[in-house]
Amino acid sequence: MLKGLGNIGDMAKMMKQAQEMQTKMAQMQDDLQSIIVTGESGAGLVKATATAKGDLTGLDIDPSIFVPSEKEVAEDLILAAIKDAQAKAADRAKSEMGKITEGLGLPADFKLPF
């Protein structure tokens, strides 16, 4: 396409790849908002639902954990479920990012955005 122009051809190719990456990144950000992950604690007594972006969207709490004398246990289970959901969201986001970098021929651990 741009043969004979030396490094200008390479630069045009790099610019095109950068634009493709930017488009894919924007799409991925939208996709992460619709991917749902669920974190659990207490063998499923507490479940936290979040988007892959890490936004908490819901809690499902088994009523059996609401014993007044066990208030701290209930709080710990809720926090643990939220942290689990956030960790799963981060892992999923990293996985989705890996798909983009792999598709562009970049190393799997390549950090985006720059």
Score class of each variant (00 low, 15 high):
M1N: 12
M1Q: 08
K3S: 15
G4S: 03
L5N: 05
N7Y: 10
N7P: 11
I8Y: 11
I8Q: 11
I8M: 14
G9K: 12
D10F: 09
D10Y: 11
M11P: 06
A12W: 11
K13A: 14
K13D: 13
K16E: 12
Q17H: 07
Q19K: 14
E20F: 01
E20S: 09
M21C: 13
Q22M: 08
Q22P: 06
K24T: 11
Q27F: 10
M28F: 09
M28K: 11
M28L: 15
Q29M: 13
Q33I: 10
Q33C: 11
S34P: 05
I36C: 06
I36N: 09
V37E: 06
T38H: 01
T38Q: 04
G39N: 00
A43E: 00
A43W: 00
A43L: 04
A43G: 02
A43H: 06
A43F: 00
G44L: 04
V46K: 00
K47F: 01
T49V: 12
A50H: 04
A52T: 02
A52K: 07
K53C: 11
D55Y: 08
L56F: 02
T57P: 03
D60H: 07
D60Q: 10
I61H: 00
D62R: 08
D62F: 02
D62L: 05
D62V: 05
P63Q: 05
S64N: 08
V67N: 03
S69C: 02
A74Q: 01
E75I: 12
I78Q: 00
L79N: 03
A80R: 00
A81I: 04
A81D: 01
I82N: 02
I82V: 14
I82C: 11
D84R: 01
Q86H: 12
Q86W: 07
A90K: 15
A90S: 12
D91P: 07
R92Y: 06
R92V: 13
A93R: 09
K94S: 13
S95I: 06
I100H: 00
T101F: 02
T101S: 08
T101A: 04
E102H: 11
L104T: 05
L106G: 05
A108M: 15
K111L: 09
K111G: 02
K111H: 08
K111F: 04
P113H: 09
F114C: 10
